[in-house]
Simulated assay, not measured.
Amino acid sequence: MRLSTVILPVRRWSEGGREQWQRAEELGFHAAYTYDHLSWRSFRDGPWFGAVPTLTAAAAATSRLRLGTLVTSPNFRHPVTLAKELISLDDVSDGRINLGIGAGGSGFDATALLRGDEEAWAPRERADRFGEFVELLDRLLTRDVVTYEGAHYSAREVRNIPGCVQRPRLPFAVAATGPRGLRLAARYGQAWVTTGDPKIFETGTPDDSLAAIGGQIQRLGKACADAGRDVNKLDKILLTGFTPDGGRPLSSVDAFVDFAGRHAALGIDEIVLHWPIADSVFAADPAVFEKIATEGVAQLGG
């Protein structure tokens, strides 16, 4: 079991931002991720910085910690420009970047670039775009020259030299629960990401959540079998904070060990905790959080 964290980009680099990423490395986290949004829910009217510049600065401020997005989506990204940024980021970090990638939701990011007469993408279009997005991004990160013509994205003689430090490209962690997304994870992913089942977040129980995630892993296994891949070759990542457990995993080391152990038994390889932010949905005791980082995984044998 690996333990990672999400550091939301809400602090100025000169006012504790740098130290937060360095502290994540000191605490021994496997990876530190950040959201790739223009803004996010209850943080919309407060400070919020860009993911790629933040990760570039974090790469320069650390030396061992893996870094990445959790997750990037097509909502305001284009594969051509994103690929160039990712190759640069992978170079600056000396090959420590993971790309968490998902279809995106219907929040602020989904409408920020629309004209007044345009409507947000319907679920089918969102899934169609995501499929093209992942396919083209894979090509851009593995080939020196790419020409591609899709229904939603295109690239004309795009060059990405010298490519990623990590070969054949930096790892994709594909967030998916539906059939189409799981097929993408099986085909292109080095990891799969879940936040649980959003349908039971408010009304379900922890046992309901475990059953739902177990079902997702079974469906991922089928998608991998259909693609001729071994599901055990894909890392399985749980981003916490969106299951009916509430803040329980961060209430104590024992609570975390129990939570993590239950999910490890399902096949989850990596658990990601949000770095505490006071007076927010991610509020938690920083001292307990750090104690979990230094003691929790050790108790699990990780």
Rank of each mutant, 00 (worst) to 15 (best):
V6H: 00
R12T: 09
S14D: 15
S14V: 08
G16A: 07
A24E: 05
H30Y: 14
A32L: 08
Y35V: 15
S42W: 15
D45K: 09
G46H: 14
T54H: 03
L55H: 08
T56Y: 02
L65W: 12
R66W: 02
G68Q: 00
S73A: 09
V80A: 02
S88A: 13
I97V: 11
G100L: 02
G102A: 11
G105M: 07
D109T: 02
L113Y: 12
L114N: 14
A120Q: 11
A122Y: 08
A122T: 15
E125N: 02
E125A: 06
G131I: 06
G131D: 06
D138V: 04
V146T: 11
V146G: 00
H152M: 06
R167F: 00
P168A: 03
L182T: 02
R187N: 08
G189H: 03
A191N: 12
P198L: 00
E202H: 13
L210H: 05
G214D: 10
A225R: 11
A227K: 13
D230A: 13
V231A: 07
K233Q: 13
D235H: 13
F242A: 09
G246W: 02
V253T: 10
F256G: 13
D258L: 10
A265R: 13
I268D: 10
I271F: 08
V272T: 12
W275Q: 06
D279V: 05
A287S: 11
F289V: 04
F289D: 02
E290D: 15
A293T: 03
T294N: 00
L300C: 01
